[in-house]
């Protein structure tokens, strides 16, 4: 498997690795997996005044899965919730030049973003 330079860069220097307090009101958590490759990905966002101030991830999986989630956290930071919903897996594929066999890694990242946003929104609804 030949990885693109961008994948290798994210793999070797992953951005925003870590965890946020999943019980905090303003934190949304998404956790997804792909059983066939055994990958598990956790992605969290911290929202202040409708803007994503911080994003963290933790991924156990191949280089492409790590790079996809690392890139996703980079893209999420500074976006509003609305803007965050616009991130599509095809954008990740394009940015990282993922080969067809690794497209599912980007889908995983998109699913994780969607789940994290949904989790955050659910918490807000429960609060109000």
């Amino acid at each position: 498997m030949v990885y693109s330079e961008k994948v290798i860069d994210h793999y070797e220097n992953p951005r925003n690795v870590g965890s946020l307090d999943k019980d905090a009101d303003n934190v949304g958590t998404g956790i997804v997996g792909a059983p066939e490759c055994g990958d598990v990905m956790k992605l969290q966002i911290q929202v202040e005044d409708g803007v994503i101030k911080d994003a963290k991830f933790k991924t156990f999986g191949c280089g492409s899965a790590i790079a996809s989630s690392s890139l996703a956290t980079e893209w999420l930071k500074g976006r509003t919730i609305e803007e965050a919903t616009e991130i599509r897996n095809v954008d990740i594929v394009e940015e990282l030049a993922l080969p067809p066999v690794k497209i599912h890694c980007s889908v995983l990242a998109e699913d994780a973003i969607k789940q994290a946003l949904a989790d955050y929104q659910k918490k807000q609804e429960e609060k109000s």
């Binding site: 956790i31 997996g33 059983p35 066939e36 598990v40 995983l108």
Partner: peptide, 26 residues
């Protein structure tokens, strides 16, 4: 068939547990 790619079957609780297994495995 189980299907390929993203998992829509497992509970978040199990995936969290899996995360811990993976951490320990690492």
């Amino acid at each position: 068939p189980l299907g390929e790619g993203s998992d829509h079957t497992s509970s978040p609780e199990f995936l969290m547990e899996m995360m811990e297994w993976k951490e320990k495995a690492a």
